[in-house]
Design a protein around this nucleic acid. Structure first.
Lengths: 232, 232
DNA sequence: CGCTATGTTGATCCATATCAATAAGTGTGG
DNA sequence: CCACACTTATTGATATGGATCAACATAGCG
């Protein structure tokens, strides 16, 4: 892999603290590849040959069963995915596809496991990362089981608003059909859900959402730190 | 803590490989307590003061929002819970209550974090444990988003059957109202779901379920290793 | 033995999915 | 730069899964 990429990978929490020699050893075996949009990178059930790092673009993690499909998460730069499968040397539980043109680092899983076995600070960094991932999924699970689709959308908008700096205008960062899938509903239902939020001051112009009255929307959405705060 | 309990805790994957001195150090600061049923051990949002280990009995992990409540998991002996919160030194994301009379070990979280920082093999064991937990939640998420409640019940029964040795009779190991909550439905709906499985040979006598025709039930349930196999 | 919590059943309501049709984008090649 | 094709978004009509409310049955439990 070109050394030009080393710094931004090294900057990730996962790799920041490990011994330089081990980092270089990981990088030596790694590839960087550019993928066009809509390429299926990995498929559910396949052996976990590589730990993936998204440098640019974005990746959709999804799953299918019995003819149905659902998006479980979207990975944006710079972060890794399928860490758990890599560590456990177990099959992927999700499929992954590029959403846009993406540059992705592939680190052979066996290298990751080997260094995990010998480098304590790498192991500790992995723990922190996994704990973070775990808590995110738990939050998603609570969101799904405790809220209606309208409430999920309302809280999603408030989260995005926060991430975007708190202004009234929120730009959706992916297509609505995918947002619908992430939120656990159909595209049709999402369309209607946006209308259902109009009484709380939400207006939609294509991919641009305006939160007219944040306090009003919050009264409806009842955001909760243990579901919606993505930092903790 | 009485040394009598050391062996069964030491036998857990999480503690099996760590240095003896560190294990003893952890145990020195730990308590064992007996709790009656229906005691709330921890509450969502509280600081994570202790890592918990269930020695006997069972514990329900649940969450509430806006007057609703849902069970997220049940912890049975011998295993730990809220490991992620302990490691991240972050607030609990779930509440926990005893379902029955339970004996539980409380290990101060700061001790766990301290030894995690110095004992590489402990850190590695934690990684394995967390990766396991993470994958379990992902499976639960797929179960929820890809299946109807009838399908979730059918697959749940097949999983239980497997765990119980594969015979036609499955004994439910908790009350139906809790099962309903775990499966993401109401008790009324669970009652009807059981009836909905009658055409596939499922009969119910109180807490004893008989799977009359496993092949038939599987044809309906379509169990999938990447959702239903709890080992991988 | 009765009290209380849990489970079942029925009637109804509501949220969400599905099906169908149209509109609005989006990208491509001429 | 436009016309066409194709995908995505919206809207409406309808069906269905699941929730809710209410009544009753049942099972633990003191």
């Amino acid at each position: 892999m070109p050394e030009a990429h080393y710094p931004e990978i090294r900057a990730l929490n996962l790799f920041a603290e490990m011994a330089e020699a081990n980092f270089l050893s990981l990088m030596r075996g790694a590839y960087v590849q550019n993928f066009p949009p809509q390429i299926e990178l990995i498929g559910e059930g396949e052996p976990s040959d590589f730990l993936h790092v998204v440098l640019s673009g974005s990746v959709d993690l999804f799953s299918t069963w019995n003819g149905r499909e659902t998006s479980l998460a979207t990975v944006r730069p710079v972060s890794t995915f399928i860490l758990a499968a890599t560590i456990k040397n177990a099959p992927y539980l999700m499929s992954a596809r590029t959403l846009e043109k993406s540059r992705i680092v592939l680190i052979p899983s066996q290298d990751v496991r080997a260094i995990f076995d010998t480098d304590g600070s790498f192991a500790r960094a992995i723990v922190t990362e996994l704990a973070q991932c775990y808590r995110s999924v738990i939050k998603a699970q609570k969101d799904l089981k405790l809220r209606t689709s309208l409430e999920r959308l309302a809280n999603y908008l408030l989260r995005q608003q926060k991430r975007a700096g708190g202004g009234p205008v929120v730009e959706l960062d992916f297509e609505k059909r995918r947002l619908a899938s992430v939120l656990g509903m159909t595209p049709e239902n999402l369309s209607r859900a946006f209308k259902g939020l109009q009484p709380y001051g939400v207006t939609v112009e294509g991919t641009r959402i305006v939160i007219g009255d944040q306090a009003d929307l919050e009264r409806f959405a009842r955001p909760n730190p243990w579901i919606d705060d993505h930092s903790t």
